[in-house]
Design a protein around this nucleic acid. Structure first.
Lengths: 130, 130
DNA sequence: AGAGATTAGTTTCTTTTTGAAACTATCTTT
DNA sequence: AAAGATAGTTTCAAAAAGAAACTAATCTCT
């Protein structure tokens, strides 16, 4: 026997984000990323175009935005609709599946805004000690 | 005028995770990270030691685990307690502030486990098309 | 007594990812 | 004619992550 450790509840089919090889972990690898969180959270406010997202999500590069949107689309979390206007228009929006995720995500981003002060003062205290 | 875009509600003091320079964003930079999410989520089950965390959070390297724990401690989200046993014992646990975050985080990790199948089939569908 | 394992990390080196900037292509505006 | 907008891709340098070895003190096994 190696160590005694508490096991956590795992839903239905033995999926477990803590297991490196579990597909659920691959899912978390995608959504557990600040850019994905911000993009999904922003899409809650409705269809958004590429450059609009780039302006809204401050500091993201086009390359990363493009990449994250691609994987979110592949994972069925967002739609990508192309309109043959000139220049071309591309609209991104949440799929029903993506919508089921945004509540959880908003809770996290909202938490960040809400508890910022506590974190900043914790940092100050820590930096004084060390 | 640049573009018309919907503004989202911002809590109390004009903090906004979408703004690159906002301190709330720095907070999200920390917690919007798969390793931080997994570590915090795991700590819900109680005090945990370094190597126990390493075993539980599959695939994390010691270097990264050590680094993430350090920043989580600095941000006041976890405690680090050292006991002068031999060999030394170090226990990590959630602070009250950290506990306020774990509910939001569990929602995300739990979502990953719950909706894995939908995501996997979305991927298959996408890969067939492209 | 020496080998091996344990603790919680750090160090070094390689590989991967990220970020910044420039570039594409087509059309409209100045 | 040059500039600006669209939605990206490409290229290159910098930063981060991952793998593996190393630390130091002590206990256990042979």
């Amino acid at each position: 026997m190696v160590t005694t450790r508490k096991l956590r509840e795992v839903p239905s089919d033995h999926y477990n984000v803590f297991a490196k090889e579990c597909p659920a972990r691959m899912v978390l690898d995608r959504i557990g990323d600040k850019w994905a969180l911000l993009i999904l959270d922003h899409l809650k406010s409705g269809k958004t175009r590429f450059n609009e997202l780039k302006r809204s999500v401050g500091g993201i590069s086009q390359k990363v935005l493009s990449g994250v949107l691609k994987t979110l689309e592949r994972d069925g979390l967002i739609y990508r609709e192309v309109y043959p206007t000139v220049p071309v228009t591309v609209e991104y929006s949440l799929t029903p599946l993506g919508e089921t995720l945004t509540e959880a995500i908003s809770a996290v981003t909202h938490w960040a805004e809400l508890h910022m002060k506590e974190i900043l003062s914790a940092r100050e205290a820590y930096d004084l000690k060390v």
